[in-house]
Every structure is written in C-alpha cells, then in structure tokens.
Amino acid sequence: MNIFRLTGDLSHLLAIIILVLKIWKTRSCAGISGKSQILFALVYFTRYLDLFTNYISLYNSFMKIVFIGASLATLYLMYMKFKATYDRNHDTFRIEFLLIPVTLLGLLVNHEFTPLEIGDTVLVVQVLWTFSIYLESVAILPQLFLVSKTGEAETITSHYLMALGSYRALYLINWIWRYYFEGFYDLIAIVAGIVQTVLYCDFFYLYITRVIRGRALRLPA
C-alpha cells in the first residue's frame, strides 16, 4: 500500500459518499445517470465475488462491502425512493453497446488463458474480475453522455465526477510505483485504467477551468 493507492481508494470512497449524500439531501437524483449506476453495481458484484473465495485483508474486505452497499443504496434511492426525479428522458445511452463488447473481451483476454469449464470457481471468478475491469473503464459513459445531452451538471455532481475520475488516475501512479518498487504489474488493469482515465480528460478540463473558479459546469453550446 502506497500513498497513491490509498488516496485513490479514499477518492473513490469520497465519490460514492458524495453521490449518496447529494441524492439524499436534495431528495433528487436529477442529473445522475441510472444506467451508469447499474453498470457500477455490476462492476462491484462481479469483481468482489472474491470476497467469498480469497481473503486479502480486513481493509480490503471492508472497502468492498462498503462499495457494494453504497452502490445498492444509490440504486434504491434512484429507482425506488426518488424515482420521480430520475432524468430518464436524458439517460438514453444504450448500455448493450458497452456490455456486449466488454463481455466478449473479458472471455477472450483474461489472465487464465484456458477454456471455460463449468464448475471451475477460480476461473469463473477470474473471468468475472476481468469483465469488471473492462466494464468499469467505460461505465461512466452513460453519465458523461447525460451531462453532454443536458449541457450542464450541478456543482455537487461535478465534485462526484471529479473524485470518481481522480481515483483511477491515482491508481495509474500507484501502478508505476509498484512496477518500480515491487516489480508488480497487471497489464489488463493498466490498459483499462488508462482508458478509464482518458475518458474523463474532457471533464477534468471543464472542472478545472469552471467549477474550481466557482462557476457552474455548463458546456459550450
């Protein structure tokens, strides 16, 4: 555990807390993509299956449970409690365009390189982990699509996106660190992490030039 990994995790934690609090306090999930939230829930469920197969540390298990819990809470708030405020007319990204390629890629390019056999738990967990890494890298697209469609985002939503985007960027530095000091690298995670971070670049630029200077995030017409 190095400082970049820890700040990355804390940034991720902050993002999901900001999101739940935003919805809870404003009693509204306007401006938030339910489709991105469904994809994130799928990411957590498929990646953290190893809670049952592989104990790493109390910290690791705790964070995984918090991510799954917060993700479920967000879905509950969006699709049940504050359903009336959900922006479904703008949340029109077709998630099958992400799910189908990501599933195929997860089956083809993973760490096992052996044919899928029914009943092989380790292999299934590994393939699902790979699927989750690929899916996470693009899961924000429906949200970015929604922001571009409405042309604006509430400041609190911008903070959420900033924290969520920074998390993988900090992980990238963590991976450089681990490569130099531990000789550890995971090519699948690195490539997906780069893709994930690059997708946020346009947003990072808007955040720095507008939100930090106290203006609302509004896209140029």
Binding site: R47, N54, I56, H111, W129, D186
Partner: peptide
C-alpha cells in the same frame, strides 16, 4: 486451475 493473480486492489 489455480490463479496466480491475487487482486489486492479495489
């Protein structure tokens, strides 16, 4: 199959 990849990251 025994995986040699332990995912300690989140």
């Amino acid at each position: 199959t025994k995986s040699d990849v332990d995912h300690d990251e989140l």
